[in-house]
Each structure stands twice: as C-alpha cells, then as structure tokens.
Amino acid sequence: MHAAPSILPFVFDRVSYAVGATQILYDISFELAARTRTVILGPNGAGKSVTLRLCHGLLTPTGGTVRWAGAYGGDPARRQAMVFQRPVMLRRSALANVAYGLKLAGLDRAAREARARDMLERVGLAPLADRPARVLSGGEQQRLALARAWALRPEVLFLDEPTASLDPAASNAVEEIIKAIDASGTKIVMTTHNLGQAHRLADEILFLDRGRLVERASADRFFKVPATAEAAAFIKGELP
C-alpha cells in the first residue's frame, strides 16, 4: 500500500520534556520500526500522552532530539496521523469530517467523497454519513476519528488512549478497527493503561513509569517475564 521509501524508523534520542519547572520525561531513547504494533504502557501520569505528542510533532522536546530517519524525502508530517483520547469532531456531517482531512491532503472533491464514504463503510458508520458528527455517541465519534485518520493512509498512526472513555462494546469495536488498520499496512503506536488491551494489541511494549522508560520488550516477554520490578508490580496490580 505504501510506496517506498519509508519515513521509518523513527528515532527518539535522549528526549526529555519539561513544562516550566515540572519535569515530565527524563532522558528517553527508543526507535520505532515498521510492521510492529507498539504499545506505550504505563499508569496514569507516566508521560505516555506527552511521549506520543512528541513523536507526532505536536510538542517539541526540551532536551534531546526526535527524527524520522527513513529514506522518505518529503515532509514526514504528511505520512502520519493521530487519534486522540477525546475525539474532536468538527460541526459538520460525519462524512464531511472525514473529507476535511482529505481536502487538507490535497484530494479533489470527487476523490474525497468516494474515499470518505469507503472509510465510513469500513468503520461501520455508513448509515450515519449525513448525521452531524457532534451528535454521534462517544463510541461512534471515536470510530469516526479512526476513519478520518485512516483515510489519510498514514504510514504511522498514533493513538492516545483511544478507548479510555468508552464502554466495553465500543472499546471492542475500536480495537477491531485498529487491527484492520494494522492489517492494511499502517504502523500502530498506541498508549494505554489497560493491560488487557495491551495484551490483545501489542507486538512490543514500551513501559513508562513516572517519566522514565523503564522497560522495552516484546509483548510476550513483557507479560510473561517482566524484567523490572516496576513492570512486574504494574502487571500484578492490574491483572484480576
């Protein structure tokens, strides 16, 4: 689906982030490669959302560097998208919300409309295409946000706690869409504090605690034999 060259790998090099005197992230380094589902896991306040925003370029690190190290020559911002914890819906129809992002991406009217309809179909919102987006339920809005991001055919999709405010059924629908986006060839980078969700979706785990990257491991190893006491405690505390 994506023509080479790629924007990946993404390099997070000795990054720290502070707001005034409050240090939020301390000296974090990692690389993100293609084709794996990366889940940034950790308790509330660990710095997961800030990390994701630094990756996506919404925030600028106060120390260290972030860079897209792939061979792609253009603007990496055009090849990534993000879905937020609370979806921000524009005051227009569901269809127009998806088409809006496509217009910014430079598609002409007919192409926008066709792709937007296709995306709504894929996330199961086709019957609601003409509804004002803001009157949709929370779960429907989050699916619409996923459709809007997916429509851009990003190489990397960042998701910030996409199910945190949803009920189990809606969460499940969102997870299924995330799997479909992954299957379409987009790299998934997602934050969550929900262990079950991390278990279901992650290939690899970045475990953050109080602003530090405590552990990085394949999902299998992380859940079976966590290498650090913090991770072990988090897994134990969260599992039933």
Partner: peptide, 18 residues
C-alpha cells in the same frame, strides 16, 4: 481544536476559516 487541526496538517489560514 488545536491539536486535531495541527495533526491533520491544517495551515493557519485554513484553520482560521474552520
């Protein structure tokens, strides 16, 4: 809207009209 519009790559002029 700020983060969403910046994420979608809306240039300032477009953001104003939105």
């Amino acid at each position: 809207y700020e983060e969403q519009l910046r994420s979608l790559g809306a240039p300032p002029r477009r953001a104003v009209w939105t």
